[in-house]
Write a protein that binds this DNA or RNA. Structure first.
Length: 456
RNA sequence: GUGGUUGUAGCUCAGUUGGUUAGAGCAUCAGAUUGUGAUUCUGAGGGUCGUGGGUUCGAGCCCCAUCAUCCACCCCA
């Protein structure tokens, strides 16, 4: 049989993994700097936990797992009957009751609901794990990919919203990715629908608005028309979309449009609070938070601020997203635990950094020193010296075979090893070793007693 | 889920209107060179042309199906 991978999945070799780890470490460090604690949940959840949380499209993209034991003859008739439900598009516990995790937010909400009372609120957790979506793969889209989430649960304080925006700015600053951190509020979108007298169509409106920069104003209007909005509503939405200027100018303009709505007023207040707080952080950074009323986001559990991050100078969908949800655990029978969270898309961040060549050179240097093998006695001696270095936390390797130096050099070059230590019979006799810098080609002989200090 | 693209050696790719034994560069291995590489020279190995059918005297090339890739739509990280 020919080995192959399922569609949309990948193996990661050392070079890729070093780079991925570089990103993950940066994110993890930043999360911990802000007081978040780690959490891991299972790869599989009960299908019931996930269904209905991501919208109709989302439900279709959940990987469902076939139950075991369906071939049991005694269940045969029942299984065939239940399978009819599947064929008509309904899920059925008797056929599939488990599914692969689709994101990290819903499992987190499930965890909160299951552990309420045990956790001190507000609870700040971060989670870095793969998720799966049965999407067709394309640029920046995989069927298995890594999400890095940070969520604050149990507080309405908008300071937590501010902090998450700061985390975005910090992480992408550290990674040297030039990004736009877009912010909006679901409340404002809701108010817009209210003003248009089309609350039932809020999803269609937001989806259409969200496409603005992709399809342009005319197409957006067409789409709105098709969903049955009145001319008047469409012109309100056109005004809404056309709002431009600085963040504070935009806030002034939105006030006249949706300020009459209670929800709209609240949304404006909240955005003002967050943006004002961010303005007080005068640290010089390339990444700024930009108010964008066309930002919508599909996930329907968001209720307040919403975020999305896009990299500049590169063609790639969003590399991060998040927002506030006032009652996520309510879905699991535990009301009144609000939360706010953000997610980093590791795989897309990787693709962006690769395309913009943002990974540091030295990232693939795992082994520092290679000890050459020049014979039985020599290699034994070299091994003894090497262990001394290893115990001082200097990563080393001894070439396993006594082959031509040429080969040993090539191995070192391939693995991007910085130094070679060559110990032959002459060096052994004189209790010396020859250290060669493989980058510069410089080499010198030093007493073996000084070897550890040389690398420390 | 819908539409398009590509699939030939480990990698990047040639391969004429269908015609004998399918090529190149890089990489690998061996030797020139038994203590100095990333830059020399010589030679060697490596392919059921994605897979399965079909058309044909004859298919890497044409047709159908299927799998995978990349891309777009839907949606999203």
């Amino acid at each position: 049989m020919k080995p192959s991978l399922p569609q949309g999945t990948r193996d990661f070799a050392a070079e890729t993994l070093h780079k991925r780890r570089f990103i993950i470490d940066t994110i993890k460090e930043t999360f911990e700097l802000y007081g978040f604690e780690p959490l891991e949940t299972p790869s599989i959840e009960n299908l019931e936990t996930l269904m209905g949380k991501y919208g109709d499209e989302g439900d279709k993209l959940i990987f469902k797992i076939l139950n075991n034991g369906l071939d049991n003859p005694s269940k045969r008739e029942n299984v065939i009957k239940e399978f009819e439900h599947i064929l008509s598009g309904k899920n059925n516990k008797n056929i599939t009751e488990r599914a692969l995790r689709y994101d990290l937010t819903i499992p987190f909400a499930r965890f909160m609901a299951m552990n309420q009372g045990k956790l001190t609120l507000p609870f700040k957790r971060y989670q870095i794990q793969p998720v799966w979506r049965a999407d067709r793969p394309q640029k920046g889209r995989y069927r298995e990919f890594m999400q890095c989430d940070a969520d604050v649960a149990g507080t309405y304080s908008l300071i937590s919203d501010v902090e998450l925006a700061e985390i975005y700015a910090d992480v992408f600053g550290k990674l040297k990715i030039d990004v736009e951190i877009k912010i909006n509020s679901r409340k404002i979108l809701y108010a817009l629908a209210e003003v248009c007298d089309s609350i039932d169509n809020i999803t269609a409106i937001t989806i259409a608005i969200d496409k603005l920069d992709k399809i342009g104003m005319e197409k957006v209007k067409e789409e709105l028309k098709e969903t049955g909005l009145s001319e008047k509503s469409i012109s309100i939405i056109e005004n809404y979309i056309s709002i431009e200027g600085s963040n504070s100018e935009k806030l002034d303009k939105i006030e006249t449009l949706v300020g009459a709505s209670e929800t709209g007023k609240k949304g404006i207040e909240e955005l003002k609070f967050v943006l004002d707080f961010l303005k007080n952080d005068d640290s010089k950074r390339i990444n700024k938070v930009i108010l964008d009323f066309t930002l919508a986001r599909g996930l329907n559990y968001y209720t307040g601020t919403i975020y999305e991050v896009k990299a500049r100078n590169v063609q790639m969908g969003s590399i991060g997203g998040g927002g506030r949800y006032d009652d996520l655990t309510g879905l699991f029978g535990v009301p009144n635990i609000p939360g706010v969270g953000i997610s980093f898309g590791l795989d897309r961040i990787y693709d962006v950094m690769e395309e913009l060549k943002l990974f540091p050179e030295e990232i693939n240097r795992a082994t520092e020193v290679l000890f050459f093998n020049l014979g039985e006695k020599e290699s034994k001696h070299a091994f003894y010296l090497m262990q001394k270095l290893r115990h001082q936390n200097i990563s080393c390797e001894l070439f396993y075979e006594n082959v031509k130096l040429d080969k040993q050099f090539k191995y070192a070059t391939k693995k991007n090893i910085s130094f070679a230590v060559i110990i032959g019979s002459k060096e052994m006799e004189e209790k010396n070793c020859l250290v060669k810098n493989l980058g510069t080609g410089e080499q010198k002989t030093i007493p073996e007693t000084e070897l550890v200090d040389f690398f420390k």
